[in-house]
Nucleic acid binder design. Structure first.
Lengths: 226, 226
DNA sequence: TCAAAAGTGTTCCGAATACACCCATGA
DNA sequence: TCATGGGTGTATTCGGAACACTTTTGA
């Protein structure tokens, strides 16, 4: 059996990039500059090069679009329905990335085939190209699941952060408030964090303790958080 | 941008099929009849046809190999490293299937390109072709995770089963024993099961109650089980 | 001295764990 | 009547949830 015996589909990667800005969960979309779905919004992505691993392709697209390296990145799901792309058979391997709000501030690079790139609030999205609404639904499900059972929340935060910042992120993701005392008790009991020497300064209230993730704790580690 | 501008990889599906037989977790392997890796064992799989959805391809391969329809099937992960197949660039979308021991008894169909098919104990496997060891590792991780947090355990059981059978399955997957009273209390408190009219007969001990999964409970539903 | 957010402890309730004996049946 | 696996209840421990006030700082 030869590989050449079979007609081959095209393979792309698409990346759902989340961040938290202005107390909202946001996702990065690009406006397509070419057909199909010209002028519609879609997730950043592109064709997998023939000598490039899937994750490399995802990282390349991510960096082209945001200029950011070192983000949390994991494979999400592969969508390959026959009719998902009007140009022909296109299978897309989707990825899921989280970047922290400081990095998200850096300016977005509109790349080839893209008119502009913009952060959209999850609750206020334009219509999406292809089957990208379905992809997003899946990505949000995964995001909540991961927040509940792993340490990914920290990928939305800078190296040093306060417990209040962390709590705020959980409140945004789960769309509900937590009791401050119970939240702190729970998080500290997990022994993931260590206090840093410094406290945040130049605030007109009691300066909060800054914490950092213990170096041996990997982001994404499975552990019951909430 | 045209699809034809890009060289395309080949795309396959591979299926990790688990069952429980003889009180052991087993996986179905086929012996390859063609190069590469001729005479080595691998997961059942094959090329995705150009007019066939990914899940259809997985179901087709599954049925060709085992003759079984109606199994629990979910997408696992997509492996696409450049050098994973010596023939060239081949991306494989892997699936994860669970079939119950009664169905697993039915005879296996050796299909094209395959010399034989056989159930292997997880703890006693031959060397695997391609990157299939890595795929298996990933599949086992997913299996345990799903057992802990969803109702997939029931896909290893026939429609009617005893609580002892269920407990046995958890003990095999988690490689440890559970207390009978606590296990029953926990499972029954989840309100997933209903007793059936009959009891198992022709056993030389007190006949056990048979239970079935309530019809509104979907297999795979997320819920803390253990 | 005021405004703003930081920080902290106790009680209550429900779930998980540990643990041992009697029951129903066919041989 | 015996062997076999089925079936059941209670006490203890641990973690989650509810709940309000004092502290520290800069303005």
């Amino acid at each position: 059996m030869k590989l050449s015996d079979y007609p081959r589909p095209s393979v792309t990667v698409d990346i759902v990039i989340f961040t938290i800005k202005d107390n909202n969960l946001k996702v990065l979309l690009v406006k397509r500059g070419v057909e199909p779905f010209k002028n519609k919004w879609a997730f950043p992505g592109g064709f997998v090069k023939i000598h490039e691993n899937l994750e490399q392709a995802a990282k390349r697209e991510l960096e082209e679009e945001t200029g950011v390296k070192e983000v949390y990145l994991e494979q999400l799901y592969t969508f390959g329905d026959v009719s998902r792309d009007p140009r022909g058979r296109v299978i897309t391997v989707t990825y899921f990335a989280l970047i922290n709000s400081e990095k998200a501030k850096e300016k977005l690079n509109a790349s080839t085939d893209v008119i502009e790139a913009e952060w959209f609030e999850i609750s206020n999205l334009p219509p999406l190209a292809f089957d990208h609404s379905e992809i997003l639904k899946y990505a949000i499900k995964r995001l909540k699941w991961k927040f509940e059972y792993t340490t990914i929340a920290f990928s939305f935060l800078p190296k040093r952060f306060t417990l209040t910042q962390l709590q705020k992120i959980y409140e945004i993701i789960f769309e509900k408030n937590f009791d401050k005392r119970n939240f702190r008790k729970k998080i500290l009991s997990l022994e993931l964090l260590e206090p840093t020497e410094e406290k945040e300064k130049e605030v007109s209230y009691r300066p909060p303790q800054l914490y950092s993730l213990k170096s041996k704790i990997k982001i994404g580690k499975i552990i019951d958080i909430i």
